[in-house]
């Protein structure tokens, strides 16, 4: 029933029971190359930059700052930003501040379910070094050990203006072709996974949430 051919290419999925192994794909994520033609890649990056669909998943206290983005005052629609309720269709994941271990599990799932190219923006201090929760027993201190981050917007919390600024910064970065978080995640998959499993004790999901 397994869809992979050689064992090197498959994941162990040891968090699953034998029965459940059947139900989840055990394929390893694969990195993608840029388009062979430079102009096409640039055009694609332009399109990606101008159509940023944000996953509507408020992970921390910063989630409250996302809401005003769509209001008349900030109107992020102008920049091609739109909210999207399903990770499958989203391209931007905004980590709204601190991430507890419990939330991290959800973040990992949602991130893995997004289709590349995908971008991550972290808000506030907490994802950088834990911020005021630096010694909390259940808060992540250094977020990019678990998910590759493309951009940090500092402040506690960054105001919507800062968020708009960081979106524009992200657009610049995308257009420049520098946002390869998805590939980094794949290339260093084992390292990321090991980090994730270190903090998430009850790992009862597949190793990669396709």
């Amino acid at each position: 029933m397994k869809n992979s051919l050689n064992t090197d290419d498959t994941l162990e999925n040891s968090g699953l029971t034998e029965e459940e192994q059947l139900l989840f794909s055990n394929a390893r994520p694969r990195a993608y190359e840029p388009y062979p033609i430079k102009a096409v890649e640039d055009f694609a990056n332009w399109a990606r930059a101008n159509s940023l669909w944000i996953l509507a998943f408020g992970t921390g206290c910063g989630a409250i700052e996302l809401r005003p983005l769509m209001t008349a005052r900030f109107d992020a629609n102008r920049f091609g930003v739109a909210g999207r309720p399903t990770p499958r269709q989203s391209s931007v994941f905004i980590i709204g501040g601190y991430a507890s271990v419990k939330t991290l599990k959800r973040i990992i799932r949602s991130y893995e379910q997004m289709q590349g190219p995908k971008f991550v923006i972290c808000l506030g201090i907490c994802p950088i070094n834990g911020g005021m929760y630096f010694d909390s027993y259940n808060t992540i201190n250094q977020f990019d050990q678990y998910i590759p981050v493309d951009l940090y917007a500092t402040g506690c919390m960054p105001r919507p203006e800062a968020l708009v600024a960081s979106i524009m910064a992200l657009q610049k970065k995308i257009k420049a072709g520098e946002c390869d978080g998805a590939n980094r995640y794949v290339e260093n998959f084992d390292w990321y996974k090991a980090n994730q499993k270190k903090v998430i004790k009850n790992w009862d999901m597949p190793d990669y949430n396709w």
Binding site: P29, R30, Y32, F43, A44, A47, R48, N50, S51, W53, T71, A72, D75, N77, R78, G80, Q89, S91, Q115, G116, P117, A182
Partner: peptide, 27 residues
């Protein structure tokens, strides 16, 4: 958007969205 006092999306936005999705690299 005008009704809500916003500017709203550029006219090109629907086209860009479609293009962006065509340019996704994984599925």
């Amino acid at each position: 958007a005008k009704v809500q006092g916003r500017i709203g999306i550029p006219y090109s936005q629907p086209f860009i969205n479609i293009l962006k999705n065509f340019f996704k690299r994984t599925a």
